[in-house]
Write a protein that binds this DNA or RNA. Structure first.
Length: 306
RNA sequence: GCCGAGGUAGCUCAGUGGUAGAGCGCGGCCCUGAAAAGGCCGGCGUGGUCAGUUCAAUUCUGACCCUCGGCA
């Protein structure tokens, strides 16, 4: 049986995934699934650089604009929603395009996430408190006893992962390393094609800086004020743009300082995304300095007909 | 012109008579329910220039150049 093809457009923030994907979707009769933790939120329009109303009219977008600011979101929540959407889109005789920059979200969808219980907030709080009073190292030592394999892979300062590993054991009685590998992703039922958009670092950074200025001009400060009033969730409040502007609103530094911070942190993000994606050799890279968007799209369209 | 302070890593600066460090930046990397999060690793640089003292000077002395304050 011929497997249906699912196309992924991934890449660092600022390369132009959105515009590219919209253009591609038009040619392929596609619908876009956003693999983006921040575009999911209502009201976070400017900071998450959502597709424009025009773009959303031209191509149907899924998983954009459906969460309230105080909702949590996660990779698991994402695949829970994205997985069934793929089938639905194919049944409509359309082509699913997954677009986003989060390495984990993409990997989770393609390769799957092992079935595991949700977070236990009380347990996490308890361990965080413990870490503060007696040190992160102590928790790492505890992990070593119940799961030597996981503890050797998790750095002793990486509190977040140490707690998660302990949490899995606490909730299931099985160490986290025993859960890994027991995963099923969409790659098992579809023909997955990963296209990575890229451009030389200086060019990307220039675009990022320009975009930050445009976000400020478009009213980022007002947007942050609005979001703050609505008590953002942990996920929402970790958005780039939010914390940088918050510091300005709290008079900890000037607007110019916030602007520079936003630029710097966005570049850091791009760098981290690049580092994540580089490790995945299934990705076919498209350098937008070497090949025009138009030609790249044509190439993908041709490949899809084969 | 005079007085004072200073010129050390891309930036801000610390320090030492035996040729140098820290933060930030920058680069590299890890990543399984917060991922736009979290974590790890990476520092030879004409020590402003030239001369002197010394076994040895970035560190002491002198001259010069430059920067910043103050006075004219």
């Amino acid at each position: 049986m011929k497997r249906e093809r699912v196309i992924f457009i991934i890449g660092p923030t600022g390369v132009g995934k959105t515009a590219f994907a919209v253009e591609l979707a038009k040619r392929l009769k596609g619908e876009i699934i956003s693999a983006d933790s921040m575009q999911a939120y209502r009201f976070m329009d400017i900071m998450s650089q959502k597709p424009t109303p025009g773009e959303r009219k031209a191509v149907l977008h899924h998983l954009v604009d459906f969460l309230d600011i105080d909702d949590e979101y996660s990779a698991a929540e994402f695949i829970k929603r994205a997985d069934p959407l793929i089938d639905k889109i194919i049944k409509k005789n359309k082509r699913p395009l997954v677009v986003g920059g989060s390495g984990l979200y993409i990997k989770a969808l393609v390769d799957g996430l092992f079935p595991a219980p949700e977070k236990d907030t009380a347990f996490r709080k308890r361990l965080q408190k413990e870490a503060r009073s007696s040190g992160t190292k102590k928790l790492h030592d505890r992990l070593k006893i119940i799961d030597p394999e996981a503890s050797s892979k998790i750095h002793h300062n990486d509190l977040r992962r140490i707690i998660r590993a302990l949490e899995i054991f606490h909730l299931t009685g099985t160490p986290i390393s025993a859960h890994k590998g027991m995963t099923k992703g969409i790659k098992d039922s579809y023909a997955v094609r990963l296209y990575g958009l890229i451009m030389p670092r200086p060019m990307l950074y220039e675009r990022i800086e320009k975009r930050a200025d445009e976000m400020l001009e478009a009213g980022l400060v007002e947007e942050v004020k609005l979001i703050r009033r609505r008590d953002p969730s942990m996920t929402a409040s970790s958005s780039l743009g939010y914390k940088e502007i918050l510091g300005y609103l709290d008079k900890r530094y000037s607007l110019d300082c916030a602007r520079e911070l936003l630029k710097k942190n966005t570049k850091h993000l791009a760098k981290k995304q690049l580092s994540w994606f580089k490790a995945d050799n299934r990705i076919r890279w498209i350098d937008l300095k070497e090949i025009s968007q138009e030609n790249a799209i044509r190439l993908i369209v041709t490949e899809c007909k084969v």
